[in-house]
Design a protein around this nucleic acid. Sequence first.
DNA 1: AATCTGTTTTACCATTCGGTACAGTCTTAT
DNA 2: ATAAGACTGTACCGAATGGTAAAACAGATT
Lengths: 185, 185
Amino acid sequence: MVKQIAERADLLPKLAQLFRSRGYEGTSLAAIAAATGLGKGSLYHFFPRGKPEMAQAVLDETAAWFARAVLGPLRHPGPPRVAIREMCRALEAHHKGGTQICAFALFAADETQTLFAAPLRMHFQQWIEALARVLVLAGRGAAAARTEAFDAVACIQGAIILARAAEDGRVFAGAVARLEARLCA
Amino acid sequence: MVKQIAERADLLPKLAQLFRSRGYEGTSLAAIAAATGLGKGSLYHFFPRGKPEMAQAVLDETAAWFARAVLGPLRHPGPPRVAIREMCRALEAHHKGGTQICAFALFAADETQTLFAAPLRMHFQQWIEALARVLVLAGRGAAAARTEAFDAVACIQGAIILARAAEDGRVFAGAVARLEARLCA
DNA sequence: AATCTGTTTTACCATTCGGTACAGTCTTAT
DNA sequence: ATAAGACTGTACCGAATGGTAAAACAGATT
């Protein structure tokens, strides 16, 4: 086995940061090459199908993180408030005060990329369902739990947008704190 | 005065639709020319400074609509629940079941367009403040009204994202209905 | 030393990008 | 009638786009 000087996985964080801060269309291969220090040829060695494959890889990695850091605690048996707390901590860390937009929300806004539609729908659906189940464990009725879970996820996504517009990271932390209190009530 | 065959204002709806569905970077002049039926030369007649001016015009028009249809009722003296109802009806109509993203949210996600940062910040700030004032009239304390107004706006923005991801307009209508009930409680 | 494999570099391609130049066509005022 | 101004279509520009081809390089294996 030949030692890999650079690995695909090493590029993903920088790729994710680029896409999340400038959008899919707004991120050029030249910008990616500059940010990673690799030529376009090298990029195509790791992602033979180009930019769409890079975006897909970012989405896959984000989905993996999300399954581990959010869905995991939510689905794990245990006190509801612990699961909710872990979800909130993970979100705060991932979005860094709301300055980093959700990669899924980014592609949800862009309807030209219909190839991402299915994973997107699944992502939010799984999130809402897992959170609703926790809320049922916390004593809510089935229907109320589902609507409350939807509103909670919506509130998170909206708070990221508002935090970016306000250019103030504290508003995101505040929104998450209020959400946690509301869900644990 | 020479009669204007086409007016700038006539182009704005199509421009808004393009930007809102494909993003700023994702909307090319060729696409705009095709959608409007005008050549690039004609477009530059109405918008001498090109694409940024077109986006600015869309933002301005959206801001005008928003001031009329949302801020107006919120600031008008009258029963709080009437103001809230008018806001919700206006949002439902404007976003057409969540299929049409908020033009402001669109540019909030894209940090490359820093020239839109100030209007963006003002837009959401004014909205939250106006709604908070209505909630104070409805009996809330000042601090609670402000956080509740923030969460309400965040919930709206997030619901649009979720509605687009789910490709189901009903979820947006449901979220707005729940919001109205919550605010009027 | 020669080979092999994975990686990087460089140069290049066709297309599209935002934007410009300008000739020409309308409509209206004089 | 004619001049002036409002508008339109076409052709074009340099730069940047996403993407490709292949030579060159490095490290391990033989």
